[in-house]
Write a protein that binds this DNA or RNA. Structure first.
Length: 492
RNA sequence: GUCCCCUUCGUCUAGUGGCCUAGGACUCCGGGUUUUCAUCCCGGCAACAGGGGUUCGACUCCCCUAGGGGACGCCA
């Protein structure tokens, strides 16, 4: 049997370090077995998926060196590899489930479902579909479908007993069927949900081993039900531990840089990042800590993957990155620095901004230090302003973070429009509103134009600087965070 | 709240019943080399969550408790 593994990111937002983590282990395992590693794009969420984000995934994974044998952009024998291009396949399979009775149509409105959920929660029950449409008369169902009444397809779940399954790392896992919800398999827009798509695709793409995050353990029973309903053999499943924040919660961008682009733009070498990721929940048989992906592949042993959630520790990553940088020859070092940022392509957006402000070339570097390097560390004193209080600054920065988080188009003009409308909504003069942003981003009040700087730095670096600025201003308590969230929502 | 997963130094980890006086790495602290700094070298601090079993013998096996995490969406 050929080993085939996959990584299946959804193209929503920025490429995540967790995606690289899963890609690394899937790729290393497949290659260690002489198998193939597949990239599949899970873009079944029409509202959140974007072509730009999909492209960003390709770029980020290629930067990391985690290339794939089959994928949407390079093709392969089991395509298409983009789920939005497989709708007909899912529809056909959903019909099979409907015919066999493994699934049923549900006409419940969002309002009714919300109400049911609320009632269940107030009774302190686990929110769960209440079976309202489970036993509809087939003729009625057909008639309502013919009338074009919106509906979804749901999975029929056993009322009693336990679901048992084998996890390659954790042994047998037993989950009571009562815990499992009648999952929606096909949404009212005709798109499948993850659960249907993942099973159908993993089967049709002949995936032999599924290495994925442990967040999927609790939905495994649904997948098992689907494999059984289709009469398909199940791939071996391995639930890898989740990367953690220093406070041990699941790695999140609010608490840690999680964007691959943050690491790329900050000047981490991909081989260092990958080496570090290879140490998360894994150790080499001979305990060596410095190794390449090829070396990891040559010695890989799935049984050495551990199950405790590892904290992503920037201090050790930094040390390791430094180690890899020092190991370069001076020539390689210069090439890598040029690849990173000191090249025409990367410098060209900055050049026109600096040129008009330059009398002698010696004036250039101090102006661009914060664009090409880390900006100076801030204290509350840096934000002092004639009319804005510390609280005002925190509120501005907080709201700016929230606003920029949801901004799709990370271009100068779009950034301006977003920030301007926010300042107007908060009834603060643009000139004042921008002051803490200038400090947060560049470390000083007099500097190159803000929106060009934001555009140049990119989402990940900007988020990280804004957040650290808020920390410098005393940070935001849980309570204040909630207040700020309400205040923000009242504005937009 | 319900269900599931997890639990060795602050962090990443080694350890598969005796090799453990629990090893390595990062961080931190001390010292050395270096015109400074960094590198490099040497040294140090620091852990088996708790309680019961099983066993001649438990970090290792079992149970309970505690703690942490995840899931509970027409998101993935």
């Amino acid at each position: 049997m050929t080993v085939r593994t996959r990584v299946a990111p959804s193209p929503t937002g920025d490429p995540h370090v967790g995606t690289a983590y899963m890609a690394l282990f899937n790729r290393v395992f497949a290659k260690s077995q002489g198998g193939r590693f597949i990239l599949r794009i899970e873009d079944t969420d029409q509202a959140r998926s974007s072509a730009a984000s999909e492209q960003a995934i390709y770029d980020a994974l290629r930067w990391a060196g985690l290339d794939w044998d089959e994928g949407p952009d390079i093709g392969g024998d089991f395509g298409p590899y983009r789920q939005s291009e497989r709708l007909e396949i899912y529809r056909r399979h959903a019909d099979r489930l409907l015919e066999s009775g493994a699934a049923f149509r549900c006409f419940c409105t969002q309002e009714r479902l919300d109400e049911v959920r609320r009632a269940q929660q107030s009774r302190r029950e686990t929110p769960r579909y209440d079976g309202h449409c489970l036993a509809l008369d087939p003729h009625e169902v057909a008639a309502r479908v013919d009338r074009g009444e919106p509906n979804v397809v749901r999975l029929r779940v056993p009322e009693e007993g336990d679901c048992r399954f084998e996890d390659g790392l954790r042994g047998e896992i037993v989950i009571p069927w009562r815990q499992v919800d009648s999952q929606v398999l096909v949404k009212s827009d005709g798109f499948p949900t993850y659960h249907l798509a993942v099973v159908v695709d993993d089967h049709l793409m002949q995936i032999s081993h599924v290495l994925r995050g442990e967040e999927w353990i609790s939905s495994f029973p649904k997948h098992q039900l689907l494999y059984h309903a289709f009469g398909w053999p199940m791939p071996a499943h391995y639930h890898l531990p989740l990367l953690r924040n220093p406070d041990t919660s699941k790695l999140s961008k609010r608490k840690n840089p999680t964007g691959l682009n943050y690491y790329r733009r900050s000047g981490y070498l991909p081989e260092a990042l990958l080496n570090y990721l290879g140490l998360m929940g894994y150790s080499m048989p001979d305990e060596r800590e410095l190794f390449t992906v090829d070396e990891m592949t040559a010695a890989f042993d799935l049984n050495r993957v551990s199950t405790g959630g590892p904290v992503f520790d920037l201090a050790k990553l930094d040390w390791m990155n430094g180690h890899y940088i020092r190991a370069l020859t001076p020539g390689q070092f210069m090439d890598r620095v040029a690849d990173w940022a000191l090249n025409r392509d990367n410098l060209s957006p900055i050049a026109p901004l600096v040129q008009t402000r330059t009398e002698r070339f010696i004036d250039i570097l101090p102006q661009v230090d914060y664009l090409l390097g880390e900006r100076a560390k801030l204290t509350a004193a840096d934000f002092e302003h004639k009319t804005l209080s510390v609280e005002d600054c925190r509120r501005i920065l907080d709201h700016a973070v929230r606003r920029l988080e949801t901004l799709d188009d990370w271009q100068r003009d779009a950034l301006y429009t977003a920030i301007k409308s926010l300042a107007d909504a908060m009834d603060i003069k643009m000139r004042d509103f921008l002051s803490p942003l200038f400090i947060a981003v560049s470390g000083r009040a007099v500097t190159l134009p803000l929106f060009d700087s934001l555009a140049y730095l990119g989402r990940d670096l900007v988020r990280s600087r804004l957040r650290s600025a808020i920390e410098a201003l005393g940070g935001v308590s849980k309570k204040e965070g909630k207040r700020l969230e309400r205040s923000y929502r009242a504005l937009v």
